[in-house]
């Protein structure tokens, strides 16, 4: 089923979307033009194909559906997402995957500030964000679980793969950086390590996912070593207090 977004208000568009999902498993929205909250709170094994540029909070609190955006997305895509998949065939704005608790996001190109902050994992639910390009500052801030893989493809020669205050307050999860990052950019709470076999398996799996979605060659991505960033403690502020 195809819905045309055009200049519809997001409330009406989402109303149409809910109605469509009452009957169909697969819905395509055309001509999206900044409408917010598309697929917000959507739960179930649905498919959503979006053409255009969805607004903020795309698929927030989503639990299960597979979303593909042919275009860029604005801020907070996948906010507090529970499970499912978001593929962005372009760049994402700020705070994609905020407090994401499960599911996967594949972003072909760059992300803005605060990508993957507050990501959390619990038991088998381990969220992952794969970023093809580079990230803005505060990547993985307060990250408590999950995986961020950042590839830095098409990185300008003198740019860094991630911005300032990278992984501040991180106390769980793992970030894999293709090609590494200068030490000065890394927060005190984390450390950089070489990848072991288990890490390579994880990376390989997500690289496959990335390549199949965006038509890349695996070899071109795996031609550089990955560096692993993990927190020094899951209790970064344990000794900060005196009790009275």
């Amino acid at each position: 089923m195809i819905i045309s977004a055009n200049s519809k208000h997001y409330q009406n568009l989402n109303e149409d979307l809910r109605k469509a999902y009452a009957k169909h498993k697969k819905v395509t929205i055309k001509d999206v033009n900044g409408q917010r909250y598309i697929g917000c709170g959507l739960k179930g094994d649905y498919n959503l194909d979006i053409f255009g540029t969805p607004g903020n909070d795309l698929a927030a609190y989503m639990d299960g559906p597979v979303v593909r955006v042919s275009g860029n997305v604005q801020d907070a895509a996948g906010n507090t997402m529970g499970s499912g998949e978001i593929t962005v065939c372009g760049s994402a704005g700020d705070a994609p995957g905020y407090a994401m608790r499960g599911g996967t996001m594949y972003i072909k190109s760059n992300v803005g500030y605060r990508c993957g902050i507050h990501m959390k994992e619990y038991k088998n639910s381990r969220p992952a964000i794969v970023i093809g390009g580079c990230a803005g500052s505060f990547l993985g801030e307060y990250m408590a679980g999950g995986i961020i893989i950042i590839l830095g493809l098409d990185k300008p020669r003198d740019a860094e793969i991630a911005g300032y205050r990278f992984a501040t307050g991180m106390h769980g999860g793992v970030i894999y950086l293709r090609g590494g990052i200068p030490k000065a950019r890394i927060s005190n709470e984390v450390m950089a390590l070489a990848c072991d076999e288990d890490d390579k398996k994880i990376i390989s799996q997500y690289i496959d996912g990335y390549c199949s979605r965006f038509n890349y060659d695996r070899k071109d991505i795996l031609n550089e070593e990955f560096v692993k960033i993990i927190p020094r403690s899951k209790r970064p502020y344990a000794n900060m207090y005196a009790y009275v």
Binding site: D75, A76, N79, D94, A95, Y98, R101, R114, I117, H118, K120, E121, Y122, S125, F138, E141, Y142, A144, G145, G169, H171, G172, K234, R235, P236, Y237, A238
Partner: peptide, 17 residues
């Protein structure tokens, strides 16, 4: 809370969004 056992649960003052 849907977080691993023994991890600090940190809710910073600002919502970063």
């Amino acid at each position: 809370r849907m977080i691993p056992i023994g991890t600090d649960a940190i809710s910073p003052a600002p919502h970063h969004d």
